[in-house]
Computed example of a mutant assay.
Amino acid sequence: MSTQYTLNVTNSSKQSGSVVVYQKCPNQDQYDNLYSLAWFSKSCHPGTSLKFRWTIDYSFAWSETGILSPGVYFDASELKDCDPSDTSKNTTGFSKQNGAYLFTAATKSANAGSLAIFTDATIPDGEASIGIGMSGNPTFAIPATPNFNFSFLPHPEYWVAFGRYEEGVVIDLNAVSETMKVAYPINVYSKSLTFNEDNTWSESTTLKASNARLLAAMKK
């Protein structure tokens, strides 16, 4: 069973809005049109708390989005489990057959540690988008074009923002504000954040972390 990660968020501001969790990937700059999606999003009022949970289980995803751009929804029509560490499960084909899109068996291979989608000649421009997801929700999307090899490096950075977001919406990373990167060091699976009254983020000290530091100090 995959390890579960948690993110606890407290809204200590005077605003009602949405907390969105999204990802960035190492090769995002390789493609001009590789977009981050609103991976998780929950609404909250001042003085309330939220909890997000996920596991690092990857999937391929596609959606008939039309032109992909910020503000467009990526509603996955198909999710296909994949594994970047297993070369028998880290690739897929993408095709349009009998008027409908679907993932197909891959006819090419990809290096371990990456996830690849190979489109064929049946894919028209400007109709569908493809991407990857984690823990059942899409995380990244890119317009599907014919006869192309799309490679993703699934070593994401986790980010959080406050505003007005809905799950699956394409995020304009140049326009998003009030953000914070959330890092999970080795053997750390839970983080707690506070959105402050001045619209900044701060990391809260969890009880587990406080106890660990206390025990370490007592041993000195």
Results as ranks from 00 to 15, higher is better:
134 M>E: 05
156 P>K: 02
98 N>I: 00
79 L>V: 02
128 A>H: 03
16 S>C: 07
162 F>E: 05
124 P>W: 09
157 E>N: 13
214 L>P: 00
213 R>I: 09
73 Y>A: 12
45 H>A: 14
44 C>Q: 06
157 E>P: 00
93 G>E: 02
174 N>K: 13
209 A>I: 02
20 V>R: 04
13 S>R: 07
203 E>W: 04
67 I>W: 02
1 M>Q: 07
34 L>P: 04
74 F>Q: 09
118 F>K: 01
95 S>F: 01
147 N>T: 09
110 A>R: 06
126 G>D: 08
189 Y>R: 11
67 I>K: 14
32 D>A: 10
80 K>Q: 13
125 D>S: 11
161 A>D: 03
52 F>V: 04
60 F>E: 12
33 N>A: 09
22 Y>L: 07
167 E>L: 00
82 C>E: 05
205 T>I: 15
151 S>L: 11
92 T>D: 01
141 A>S: 14
132 I>D: 03
42 K>I: 01
97 Q>K: 13
192 S>H: 11
65 T>V: 07
65 T>P: 05
99 G>N: 09
97 Q>I: 14
198 D>T: 13
22 Y>N: 01
170 V>G: 03
140 F>V: 05
43 S>M: 09
112 A>W: 01
144 A>V: 06
156 P>Y: 12
217 A>Y: 11
77 S>L: 12
116 A>C: 12
37 L>Y: 06
176 V>P: 04
139 T>Q: 11
152 F>D: 03
219 K>P: 00
205 T>F: 02
219 K>F: 06
125 D>Y: 15
39 W>A: 04
203 E>L: 05
158 Y>F: 15
74 F>H: 04
4 Q>D: 06
212 A>S: 14
80 K>V: 14
176 V>A: 08
209 A>F: 05
144 A>Y: 09
127 E>V: 15
180 M>Q: 14
207 L>E: 14
72 V>E: 12
185 P>E: 08
119 T>E: 07
82 C>S: 12
82 C>P: 07
99 G>A: 12
4 Q>M: 12
28 Q>K: 04
97 Q>S: 12
202 S>L: 08
136 G>Y: 06
90 N>V: 09
145 T>P: 01
162 F>K: 02
4 Q>P: 00
24 K>A: 09
150 F>W: 08
76 A>L: 01
130 I>K: 00
136 G>V: 10
178 E>L: 10
73 Y>D: 12
201 W>H: 07
138 P>G: 08
13 S>N: 08
207 L>V: 15
64 E>C: 11
29 D>N: 13
49 S>H: 03
70 P>K: 08
3 T>D: 09
58 Y>L: 07
198 D>F: 02
117 I>K: 01
2 S>N: 08
38 A>M: 01
